[in-house]
Computed example of a mutant assay.
Amino acid sequence: MNLKQLSELLQLSQTTVSRALNGYPEVAEATRRRVLEAAQRYGYKPNSNARKLATGRAGSIGYVLPVGRNVDLDPHFVEFLSGLGEHALTREVDLSLTPAPRERESEAYRRIAASRSVDGIYLSSMRNDERRIALVRELGLPFVAHGRSLMPAEGYAFVDIDNEGAFHDAARLLLQLGHTRLAFINGDTDFTFAVHRLDGVTRAMAAHGLPAETLKHHSAAMNEDNGYRLAMMLFRDADAATRPTGVLSASMFMTLGIVRAFNQLGLKMPQDVSIITHDDVFPFLKPESFTVPLSTTRSSIRAAGARICERLVNIITGAETGEVQEIWPVDLIVRASTGPAPSARKPGRRGAEQAAE
Rank of each mutant, 00 (worst) to 15 (best):
V273K: 00
V273D: 03
S274K: 02
S274F: 08
S274H: 10
S274P: 00
S274M: 06
S274W: 05
I275V: 15
I275K: 01
I276C: 12
H278G: 10
H278K: 10
D279A: 04
D279L: 03
D279K: 02
D279M: 02
D280E: 14
D280H: 08
F282L: 12
F282R: 07
F282H: 12
P283L: 08
P283G: 04
P283I: 07
F284Q: 08
K286A: 13
P287G: 14
S289T: 10
S289K: 01
F290T: 09
F290C: 07
F290G: 09
F290L: 06
T291V: 06
V292C: 14
V292I: 11
V292P: 03
P293M: 08
P293Q: 07
P293E: 07
S295W: 11
S295G: 11
S295I: 13
T296L: 12
R298H: 13
R298M: 14
R298S: 15
S299G: 05
S299T: 13
S299H: 11
I301Y: 07
I301V: 15
I301P: 01
R302P: 02
R302M: 11
R302K: 15
A303T: 06
A303E: 15
A304H: 12
A306W: 05
A306V: 02
A306I: 06
A306G: 15
A306S: 15
A306C: 06
R307G: 09
C309H: 08
C309N: 12
C309F: 12
E310R: 14
E310L: 15
E310Q: 15
E310F: 12
R311W: 01
L312Q: 02
L312I: 01
L312H: 03
V313I: 13
N314S: 15
N314G: 15
N314K: 10
I315S: 00
I315M: 10
I316L: 11
T317K: 04
T317S: 14
T317F: 04
G318D: 04
A319N: 01
E320L: 13
T321Q: 13
G322D: 13
G322T: 14
E323W: 04
V324H: 00
V324P: 00
Q325H: 03
Q325S: 11
Q325C: 05
Q325K: 02
E326Q: 08
E326L: 08
I327C: 12
W328K: 00
P329H: 07
P329V: 00
V330F: 01
D331L: 09
D331M: 08
D331E: 09
L332F: 00
L332D: 09
I333H: 08
I333K: 06
V334T: 10
V334S: 06
V334E: 05
V334C: 07
R335F: 03
A336I: 03
A336L: 09
S337Q: 06
S337H: 07
S337V: 03
S337E: 09
G339Q: 04
G339I: 05
G339W: 03
P340E: 02
P340M: 01
P340R: 06
A341G: 06
A341S: 12
A341P: 01
P342A: 08
P342C: 10
P342V: 05
P342T: 03
S343F: 06
S343A: 07
S343D: 12
A344T: 03
A344L: 01
A344D: 02
A344Y: 02
A344C: 04
